[in-house]
């Protein structure tokens, strides 16, 4: 029989016991933020789509934006890389800082913003006339990169990061549209990663995918957050719970609640958030 008193204590147990005896740690400092959004309002013509939203997006974390259709989720996401400016009669008030730099300053080129803040859309949209390889490096080519060696290296790196390399490495010359839906979406992620953005915005990236392809994208998002700040819009509450560190709930253009995902999904502060995530809305 083992003498429990004489046995060497399990170091993890000792550590736990010692940690328990220590005084409670001081609260963790607020995480570094990639975006600081202050009093952002957006109008499409006379219609106010975003109403005075203030929110910091944490670096190297996944922030999920949830809310019913028409609540301003996608508009908010597009404001983070000035993509909404492609819609006529759009007007923005407030400020969006990316790493401390005002994105809406008059001397900032929207094309540069969109290079720093990549975007993946709901429906995968590989360029139909291009091969898999061309789809990935087109952004670099358009930015004037000519070195084939550099392009090849970036092609492999981007496809590896998008967890697609092993599946397509022998078919790089084939059309991007020859891939399955899930592969096409990962191809679009690889295309966004190729220009080495600082942030990845995703607008319902899995809504057109089957559960297996969805799981792959979710796993990819989890891995990518080590290198990128990710903001994703999703209608799938369980997905928000699975993949995100922070969740923002929008309703009628207003930010109703923002906080750690575990808090939002276990004990939200706002009644409207609770009603929405528990399926009582409307």
């Amino acid at each position: 029989m083992v003498n429990l008193l004489m046995a060497t204590p399990d170091p993890t147990v000792v550590e736990r016991v010692e940690r328990a005896a220590e005084p409670a740690p001081t609260p963790e400092p607020a995480p570094a933020s990639t975006f600081q959004v202050k009093n952002l309002s957006v109008w499409y013509g006379d219609k106010r789509a975003i109403d005075d939203v203030t929110l910091d997006v944490a670096s190297n974390a996944v922030t999920a934006i949830i809310g019913p259709s028409g609540c301003g989720k996608s508009t908010f996401l597009r404001c983070l890389n000035r993509m909404h400016e492609l819609v006529p009669k759009t007007r923005v008030e407030g400020t969006v800082f990316l790493q401390g730099e005002d994105l809406y300053s008059s001397d900032v080129d929207p094309a540069i913003v969109r290079r720093r803040v990549g975007m993946v859309f709901q429906k995968s949209n590989p360029f139909p006339t291009m091969s898999i390889g061309e789809n990935v490096v087109i952004g670099l080519r358009l930015n004037g990169v000519r070195s084939q060696k550099f392009l090849n290296e970036r092609l492999e790196k981007s496809l590896r990061m998008a967890a697609l390399w092993d599946e397509v490495k022998d078919d790089l010359h084939k059309a991007g549209t020859s891939l399955s839906g899930g592969q096409q979406q990962r191809l679009c992620i690889a295309r966004a990663l190729a220009v080495e953005p600082e942030v990845l915005l995703m607008d319902e990236p899995c809504s057109a995918l089957d559960p297996i392809a969805t799981a792959k994208i979710e796993e990819l998002i989890y891995e990518l957050k080590a290198h990128y700040t990710i903001v994703t819009v999703t209608h799938n509450m369980q997905q928000a719970g699975r993949i995100s560190d922070y969740t923002a709930f929008f309703y009628l253009g207003r930010l109703i609640e923002f906080g750690p995902t575990t808090k939002i999904f276990t004990n939200p502060n706002e009644r409207q958030t609770e009603d929405y995530i528990t399926g009582r809305f409307g």
């Binding site: 509450m237 369980q238 719970g241 276990t266 004990n267 995530i277 528990t278 399926g279």
Partner: peptide, 10 residues
């Protein structure tokens, strides 16, 4: 079936 959250989960 319903993947309850918040007060429902509790």
């Amino acid at each position: 079936r319903f993947q309850p959250v918040a007060s429902d989960l509790r």
